[in-house]
């Protein structure tokens, strides 16, 4: 992450942080993932029910369902049901028309319902997403970004260290100075989880929904337990990606958005200095806010 310098960089220094391949991949992904998520919701809206196993259609029991019943919309997971009128299952579009589709138009691409057009967006950006992931993986193994920056050190894996990091995060105390150049263990865990678990699961479960791929690679059906299970896992992983993105954005905002976004565009990052507001030292902080 850092260029090899003799002196330890100090707070306030502008230092090199993200390599070019990381930056390119980040922004391509930022666009591709948002489009994939939103066009994916369009595809989900065509049949807003999820099943386990090989088959599953309207006569079969769904483990998750978004629907409308009379005047209300609902989300049902197993036997548990929650009313979601206005957001899921029954909502008004920007022109005030009531729709009983699952996900509302502001969350889908296109904003009007068209399964065919949603599929055009989805499969175009699925190629970009999958090829980008492969290219990033090869480059990052080659330039040792994975080994050097993402792989956890042995010492970081001790329960004490992890617990310490969780407490620091919960108190919103982020590393300062040169320590801010290294990913902490929670960052490493979430990036590894996304890059090595969630993204490959998205790609493989996506392929399992393809009847041609099932003929070419029948083992896809075996590892995921059938096409409908793969569709369910695809949806669950997509929701986990949404969760990751939300936490990621909150963290960027809390850690200083301009500096963080700059470091992902130009690669340059200004090392954060000492916190000027330490909660224990200033008990009046909350009131001041």
């Amino acid at each position: 992450m850092t260029e090899s310098t003799d002196a330890e960089p100090r707070p306030g220094d502008l230092v090199k942080r993200h390599k070019l391949p990381t930056r390119i991949w980040h922004w391509i992904n930022a666009i591709a993932i948002v489009i994939l998520l939103m066009s994916g919701l369009t595809i989900f809206n065509a049949h807003p029910r999820l099943y386990w196993g090989s088959y599953g259609a309207n006569y079969d029991p769904a483990w998750l369902q978004i629907g409308g019943e009379g005047e209300r919309g609902y989300l049902q997971v197993g036997d548990w049901q929650v009313t979601t009128t206005g957001v899921l299952g029954r909502w008004r579009d920007s022109e005030g028309n009531i729709s009983t589709r699952a996900f509302p138009s502001w969350s889908t691409i296109p904003g009007f319902y068209s399964l065919a057009t949603g599929r055009l967006w989805h499969f175009f950006f699925a190629w970009i997403f999958a090829l980008g992931w492969i290219a990033f993986l090869i480059t990052s193994l080659w330039n040792r970004h994975v080994q050097r920056d993402l792989a956890p050190r042995k010492s970081e894996l001790s329960p004490r260290h992890i617990w310490h990091d969780i407490k620091q995060h919960a108190r919103l105390r982020f590393p300062t100075g040169a320590a801010a150049l290294k990913y902490n263990i929670l960052q490493k865990a979430s990036y590894i989880g996304v890059i090595f678990v969630l993204i490959p699961l998205m790609i493989l479960t996506g392929l399992t929904m393809s009847p041609t791929m099932d003929a070419a690679w029948p083992w896809l059906l075996d590892i995921f337990g059938g096409r409908q299970s793969a569709r369910s896992i695809h949806f669950i992983c997509a929701m986990l990606l949404v969760l990751f993105i939300l936490v990621h954005l909150v963290m960027v905002v809390l850690a200083g958005p301009l500096n963080e976004v700059r470091s992902m565009i130009t690669g340059r990052f200004r090392l954060p200095g000492k916190r000027d507001a330490e909660p224990p030292a200033q008990p009046a902080t909350e009131a001041a806010e």
Partner: peptide, 28 residues
């Protein structure tokens, strides 16, 4: 939409490449 649907050709060609002409769909 024509730009987006170029992915359809890519999908067809690559799926045929990995699956061959006579790869069989699973029979239950």
């Amino acid at each position: 939409k024509n730009v987006l649907s170029s992915a359809e050709d890519l999908s067809r060609v690559s799926q045929r490449l990995v699956g061959g002409r006579n790869g069989l769909a699973r029979e239950y």
